[in-house]
Design a binder for these strands. Structure first.
Length: 547
RNA sequence: AGCGGGGUGGGGUAGCCUGGAGUGCCCGUCGGGCUCAUAACCCGAAGAUCAGUGGUUCAAAUCCACUCCCCACUACCA
């Protein structure tokens, strides 16, 4: 079995925040690293999502062309993900030519197969900004409850669904002008046609989490609607029809196609090589994404894949994470509420963030990031339980055994401990297979705790006990491998301290052996404690410096 | 309003699909131990009407119905 892993393409009009990292990119990276260690064939595909109205608006605000804005943030994001040790097999962009070509082909094929329908609709138009306005970009007074500002699609006051033309005192949120209503032609994906096939397919995906599967099923059961896949914009993939001048394909349509075009790019444009992942029956297609993206990946995207009828695999698994909040509230760029990746990278090592984000991963419900929580995870778990076990065993060998792994005489307690190592590889592996990354990390943490227990029981400082130290070194090495999907940089440091050759990431998912007689390197603490209070202050001063 | 998810000792989280003693894990609190280690580590204890009500069952955190509360989504933000 081969594994094609994707994470939702990050949108390129901003610096990503911790939630963006935790919500798909990091877990996909951790999962992929596990797969690789386990000896599986796997690739991790991603890229930046560079179309849509917000890009054009951000570009205006920053006085850049959309292309230059995308260049800028694609560069920033590429750099940031590297700093967090995210290892993509390919990180592409949806503005590259092959992506345009493939998106055009998808559109033409769906049209030829009768899945795309042309319709005339009326939309608000901002004359000053010269822009058709998506519903969310108009606001006014709710005709039902008088609440203001109500958005163009729904009133936040009474919760009623609205149409933009129902709003009183309607305004464009871009220019503040009153929009006029104009007719415009658009193309719709005929989703209702796929209802039966989607329903059957979704019902058979019993291995999915209920939040993903039930949510998608409820859409199908309530009746799918035809969905507009074009926009009146000049930024995007042009609609390949003579009567569609000035119209582009909707960013939500082209973004997932980016998974395929990015895979082709990995193979230098060789489509048949990419198809070995996309069309071969022994590949599992696995999407990591945030819950807001579930309908798109579970309904629209599979319909597109079915509709082109070219033998593409449907997703095997869709991991839809809930949201990460900061101090109990949503991340918000406009309120500057949250932590952005450039700030996080400047404050603490990537591994501290990676460890904490996985340990609070919102797998079944929203999770909250706070400095308190960060402190607990880094100090109590990463530093005290894991780091301290490694450090106490390694310094002991330095001071009492001259830095040389001693020859053991395996007694029952030692054998038991070695068995626990094997059991942890097995248990964590199973949890990875079930996409329970948080559980896998937890089982590794428990092994470190067992190590501390063992060390205390053996009390090698009381009597000569080379066996206990031999076993502890085996544990250290096991931890290095077990932790490497989560905290690759620290794992590698530990690996080298144990005088092991090469990269820990290219070993295998099984207990490594450090031979008796091996000369170990001088240990330095793997981690250090952080002070939650000071962390908040350091963030504030960082922001102060930048103005 | 509708749809989806969630409510489990003080905090967090797993268990629920496939019912079997309130079981596990991380933290906190209290008491004890250890002194190799970054004031780290280990042991023990206290602490819960499993949101509520009703039902099914020999048996319910788990299945069913209703109610309350939290989060998100609702198709033209991406």
């Amino acid at each position: 079995m081969k594994y094609l892993v994707t994470s939702a393409l990050p949108y390129v009009n901003n610096v990503p925040h911790l939630g963006n990292l935790a919500g798909s990119i990091l877990p996909a990276d951790v999962y992929t690293r596990y797969r690789r260690l386990n000896g599986d064939k796997v690739i991790y595909i991603c890229g930046t999502d560079e179309h849509g109205t917000p890009i054009t608006i951000s570009a205006k605000n920053e006085r850049l062309s959309p292309r230059l804005l995308c260049d800028k943030y694609h560069g920033i994001q590429t750099d940031l993900f590297e700093r967090f040790h995210i290892k993509f097999d390919n990180f592409s962009r949806t503005t590259r030519k092959p992506h345009y070509e493939l998106t055009t082909q998808f559109f033409e094929k769906l049209l030829a197969n009768g899945h795309i329908i042309e319709k005339v609709m009326t939309m608000p138009y901002d004359q000053k900004a010269e822009l058709f306005l998506p519903d969310r970009y108009v606001e006014g007074t709710c005709p039902h409850c008088g609440y203001s500002p109500a958005r163009g699609d729904q009133c936040d006051g009474c919760g009623k669904l609205l149409l933009p033309e129902e709003l009183k005192n309607i305004k464009s949120t871009i220019s503040g002008e009153t929009p006029i209503f104009k007719k415009t032609t658009h193309w719709f994906l005929d989703l209702p046609k796929f209802s039966d096939r989607l329903k059957g397919w979704l019902e058979s995906q019993t291995h999915w989490r209920p939040n993903v599967r039930n949510f998608a099923l409820s859409w199908v059961k309530h009746g799918l609607k035809q969905r507009a896949i074009t926009r009146d914009l000049d930024w995007g993939v042009p609609v390949p029809l003579p009567q569609a001048a000035g119209k582009v394909i909707y960013v939500w349509f082209d973004a997932p196609i980016g998974y395929i075009s990015s895979t082709r790019e990995l193979y230098g444009g060789d489509a048949s090589k990419a198809d070995e992942w996309w069309k071969s029956k022994d590949t599992q297609l696995i999407h990591f994404l945030g819950k807001d993206n579930v309908p798109f990946h579970a309904i629209v995207w599979p319909s597109m894949l079915l509709g082109v009828d070219e033998g593409y695999n449907l997703p095997h698994y869709i991991e839809g994470y809930e949201y990460l909040k900061f101090n109990g509230k949503k991340f918000s760029k406009s309120l500057n509420h949250g932590i952005w990746l450039d700030e996080a990278a400047a404050l603490y090592p990537a591994d501290y963030w990676r460890y904490t984000l996985i340990s609070i991963l919102p797998q079944t419900k929203d999770a909250d990031f706070s400095w308190q929580e960060f402190g607990k995870r880094v100090n109590d778990e990463l530093n005290d339980a894991i780091g301290n076990f490694v450090h106490r065993s390694l310094t002991f060998i330095q001071s009492k055994f001259g830095g040389k792994v001693p020859e053991p005489e395996l007694d029952d307690a030692a054998k038991e401990m070695l068995k626990s190592i094997d059991a942890t590889f097995e248990e964590a592996g199973k949890l990875f297979e079930a996409f329970d990354l948080k559980g896998a990390l937890n089982s590794v943490l428990r092994l470190a705790k067992k190590g501390n227990q063992y060390f205390n029981e053996q009390a090698p400082w009381k009597k000569d006990n080379p066996t206990a130290l031999y076993v502890s070194v085996q544990l250290d090495a096991a931890l290095s491998v077990l932790l490497s999907p989560f905290i690759p940089a620290s794992s590698q440091r530990l690996w080298q301290t144990l005088s092991q050759k090469g990269s820990v990431s290219s070993t295998s998912w099984s207990a490594p052996k450090v031979a008796a007689g091996t000369n170990l390197q001088k240990p330095r603490p793997l981690f250090s404690k952080i002070n939650p209070k000071e962390a908040a202050e350091r963030l504030a001063s960082l922001r102060g410096k930048r103005g």
